[in-house]
Each structure stands twice: as C-alpha cells, then as structure tokens.
Simulated scan of single mutants.
Amino acid sequence: MHSRPPGLAQYLASEIEELIGTRCLRSGDRIATMEELRTQTGYGRATIGEAARLLTERGSVDVRPGRGGGLFVAQVSPVVRLRQTLLTVPHGAPTVADAIAVRDALEELVIVEAAAHRTDGDIRDLEAHLDAMRRAGDDLEAFLRANWELHERIAAVSPNPLARAMYLGMMRCIAELSVRADSQDTSTASVYLTQRLAVHEDIVEAIRLGDADRARAAAAAHRSSTASGVAPP
C-alpha cells in the first residue's frame, strides 16, 4: 500500500484500481463483497460505499447487489485501462519527477479546455474548493486534500477523456509524494500555502472569465511554481 492520497474513499478507490491492474483482473472478475472490503480495510460502510460510487463513476467496477454480489471488474474502456496501467507504475522519486513532467505537459490543455467549456455550476464548484483551501489555513493535510479536489474538478470540465485520465493519474502520483515530503517541514507552511493558494486563485479566475490567454498564463505560473521540486498539486 502506498502513502494515502487525500480522502479515505479516494484512497480506497485508488487501491482497488491498482489491485485490478496488478492482479490482471479481467472484465467480470469478482473483486470483493462490501463486507469483505470492510473486514480487509477496517473502514466503515459509508467509506466503502463512497469508494464504490467513485469506482462506478470512473467505469472501473460494477456493483452487483444481493447474494453473490459485490464489486466486479467492469467492461473496461480504453480510458479506464489507461488509468489502471498508470497505477501500476512503481512509485519513487524518479517516477514522481516523470509524473511532474507529464502533468506539466497536460496542464495547459486541461486548464484551457476548462476555460472554454465551463458552466456556471462548474465555477460554483471550483470556488467552493478554493474556499476549502482558504479554510484549511496552516493545516497542510486539509490544504492538500482541497487542492487535489480542485484539480480533479477542473479536469472534470474537460471534454477530453484521455487527457483527464492521464492528468489525474499524474496528479495522484504527485499528491502522494507531496503528503510525505511536505509533512517533514511545516516551519514555513503559512507563507508557502498562501503562495500556493494565490496560484490556484489565478487558475480559477482565468477559467471563470473563459480567457484562453489568461488560462495559459495561469498554467505556466503553476508549472513554474513547482519547477524547483516536488510541491502540492
């Protein structure tokens, strides 16, 4: 098991997707019942149910009710197969450096597409995630969780499923290492997180305005802010 990404349900969903890939499970193969997952993980029914919902939305699993039911591998689309393949890549510093490079290459595409296709509802959601980052204050774990959820919501606006799958796969890898690395030194957390918040406020403002040039500039600022090392998403 790897270091936990933000949110227990997100973590469990990622672990199940990784399990599907590493065990080479095929469409229709049984993963586990809900009760088996509770026993194996120690998580409550609400967390198990939320993880199952996330996996169903991603197209990774089918949930079958009743006796003999549980979580089964869904008929896998090329996008889901790509996500599962990304999850089997070994973790470590070189892998994360590679993930940052790939994420950076996709960043502008994802943000510019979000600016082009956003709705009023999308903007409300993005603002809510920014508010969560503000409320986190100096709480690094809460900030990282809200930050991850903001990027995930931005990616959801893009109509390009391949870009979404690759971008979120890279973000997950980076977020996991960020939790480990940044938790080692919180002496400058307040200034650092204030700077990170400002970068993300610019991204959301560019998306809200639907301004492609401003979106490109915001993406470039986000890339440059992490160029010197591993940082939160």
Rank of each mutant, 00 (worst) to 15 (best):
M166K: 04
H222K: 14
P65T: 09
D138I: 11
T194H: 06
A156C: 03
E152I: 00
G169Y: 04
H91M: 13
T95C: 15
G121N: 13
Y11P: 02
I203N: 03
L86K: 00
E50R: 15
L197H: 00
A99V: 05
L140N: 05
L8T: 09
L86C: 04
A215M: 09
G169P: 03
R180T: 06
D98F: 00
A52C: 08
V76T: 11
S158N: 08
G28L: 14
L87T: 05
L55T: 02
C24K: 15
A46Q: 12
H117L: 01
A218E: 08
T88P: 04
R83L: 12
R83D: 05
V89I: 15
A9F: 07
C24I: 06
V89P: 04
T95R: 15
T226M: 15
D213R: 12
E149L: 15
S14Y: 03
T226P: 00
Y43D: 00
A181N: 13
Q184Y: 07
Q40M: 13
R135W: 03
L25V: 07
E57N: 05
D185K: 01
D182T: 10
Y192C: 00
L150W: 12
A206C: 04
T188G: 13
N147T: 04
E149F: 13
G59H: 10
V61N: 02
R118M: 00
S60C: 09
T33S: 15
R4Q: 13
R172C: 00
T85C: 09
A101Y: 11
N160E: 09
I207Q: 03
G137I: 07
L168S: 04
A142K: 09
R45C: 06
G21D: 10
D62H: 02
L130T: 08
M166E: 10
G92I: 08
V157P: 03
A221E: 12
G169F: 01
L140P: 07
G59T: 10
G49R: 04
L209W: 01
H91S: 13
T95Q: 15
L109C: 02
A142Y: 01
V80S: 02
R223P: 06
T88S: 04
G92E: 09
R164P: 06
A231T: 14
G7M: 14
L71D: 02
A52L: 07
V112K: 02
D104Q: 12
A155S: 12
A32F: 12
G49H: 01
S183M: 09
A115G: 01
R30H: 13
F72R: 05
L82F: 14
A132N: 08
H222G: 09
P94W: 11
M133V: 06
H151A: 05
D131I: 03
I20E: 06
Q40R: 13
L8W: 08
E113N: 00
R153H: 13
L130S: 07
R172H: 11
G68M: 14
Y11C: 11
D138T: 14
R81T: 06
T186L: 14
E152Q: 06
L140W: 05
S183A: 12
D182L: 15
A99D: 06
I48L: 11
S178E: 09
D98L: 10
E15A: 13
L12P: 04
A128V: 09
L130Y: 10
A136V: 02
Y167T: 02
